[in-house]
Amino acid sequence: MRWLIACDKFKEALSAQEVCEQIARGLQQADGLSAFSIDCCPLSDGGDGFLQVMHKAGGSQWQHSTCHDALLRPHEATWLWLPNEQTAFIEVAAAAGLAAIPASKRNPHQSSSYGVGELIQAAIKQGARRIYVGIGGSASHDLGLGLAAALGVRFFNHEGNTFIPTAHSLYEVERIEMPANSLPHNCHIVALCDVQNPLTGVEGAAFTYALQKGFSKEELPQLEAHTRQAIERIATVCPHAREAACLAGSGAGGGIAFGLHVFFDAPLMAGASWIAQRLNFGARLQQADVVITAEGKLDRQSHFGKVTHFVGHEAQKQGKLCVAFCGTCEVSMSEKLPYDYVCSILPAPMSLEEALTQTAQHLQAAAFQLGKLMTNDKLRGLFLKK
């Protein structure tokens, strides 16, 4: 039996590679007759862990650059350089990530994407012809105006002073000046979006993701209003800004995807799909009998471009059995999910802290149980008939 394990990280617990390895270990322990062939394919949607997944694919070198974190403090971040392709991979979370800031110091109102622009500058100095920016895990909701400022776009308030806009000061943008040449003519940026939400609206960045950055529920309507006000100002220099705010993926990274698109003509691509293609996922899926994917929390946000949803849909297209492991499942079973089975890995109710520290053994145990089921001829038959 041929297994494909295609998973993203479990946030705050295991990397994508570690998730795949723990599931593989459980299957191997269940495979007394050595009848299993296991292919581990760590994936990413462009968020936290994007660089690790791409580095494992080979051909890249780690680079270290000094930039500013989301709170504009000096910070050293890593990115990847592919010399044979003159290509750079940059992870928003590495420069302006929420996870890098202790919970007690997080301030979504003042958080900025400025450091992402500094990493793009570093890649340009390295000679990059193409820069892929993995967008996700950001601490900011600044529409990418911070990174634009780092790359030469100037923002003025009503007093005529330049400043770096954050969520708190989006409404203060009065005038915008574009640089003569923001990017070298032979350099192109591609935005790899971890979600497919638009920037504005009920499924936009403010109403869907601002709470997890630290905004209160009461602040969301005002945040949405300030976002729309900033878009109107941006439209004075980027006429397609209003339309761009409605594009799938433009809400990724608190609007960083939007900023890359309107200021630097970056196409918005679904991160999970692009990364999977780069890792030859389609051909590997064709060879599999059973696919396992996994996510810490399977919820409504999973439907907006997350790895589990992507893997499930691709498995459906090829008629492959797909099993989704999760820590918690917050989707209704009446919803049409792209999985044949959804299995919680938790053996009993427990706190989040306990679940995070025991993620590895829980994944391994769940995979062992699934593997044992598939080694029993009668049970395997019932399982595969679903």
Rank of each mutant, 00 (worst) to 15 (best):
E243Y: 09
C329R: 14
S37R: 13
C193Y: 02
A235D: 05
G59P: 10
H185K: 13
L14D: 02
L71E: 04
L370H: 02
G137H: 01
T357D: 08
H309F: 12
T166L: 08
S140H: 03
L72C: 08
L337W: 07
I176M: 09
A324K: 03
L27V: 09
K320Q: 09
G137C: 07
K386W: 02
A266S: 13
T357E: 11
V53F: 03
L223Y: 06
S351N: 08
Q364Y: 01
P165N: 13
H158M: 07
L356G: 00
I275N: 02
Q318K: 15
G117E: 01
G137L: 05
C326W: 07
A99K: 13
E76Y: 01
Q110D: 14
L143D: 01
E172A: 15
N376Y: 00
S65P: 00
S273N: 12
E85H: 12
I38A: 05
M54D: 01
L220T: 08
F89H: 12
A276R: 05
F36G: 03
L373H: 07
S140Q: 03
F264A: 05
A244H: 04
W81G: 01
V92Q: 14
M333S: 13
I5D: 00
T166D: 07
D31G: 06
A276E: 04
A180L: 14
C343A: 11
Q121G: 10
C246T: 14
K56G: 08
S302E: 07
E85D: 13
D39M: 10
E203M: 10
H55W: 05
S65I: 00
E174N: 14
F258V: 11
Q28T: 14
I256Q: 00
H362C: 14
M54S: 01
H309T: 11
H226M: 10
A283E: 15
H158T: 13
F163C: 10
Y341N: 00
T66I: 09
R284W: 02
R284M: 05
A123C: 10
K372F: 00
P165Q: 14
R278A: 11
D194E: 08
M374W: 10
E354I: 07
P239R: 10
G204K: 04
Q22C: 09
Q361R: 15
I275G: 01
H188Q: 15
W3A: 00
Q222M: 12
C193V: 04
Q369H: 11
A128W: 03
V307H: 05
V153H: 04
R130H: 11
T328C: 07
F156T: 09
L223P: 03
W274M: 11
N186F: 09
D69G: 03
I292M: 04
S332Q: 12
V307S: 04
L27E: 00
L43P: 02
M1N: 01
A139M: 08
H68S: 10
L337Y: 02
I90V: 15
G204C: 07
G117H: 05
P347E: 09
L298R: 03
Q17I: 11
F10A: 02
L247D: 03
I124S: 05
G296M: 07
A191Y: 04
G312E: 06
L298A: 04
K213D: 07
R278C: 05
L268Y: 06
A276D: 03
L80P: 00
K385G: 06
R233M: 12
A276C: 12
S351M: 06
L143K: 04
F155L: 08
Q277W: 03
F215H: 10
G32T: 12
V153R: 05
S138E: 06
L145C: 15
S182Y: 05
P221N: 10
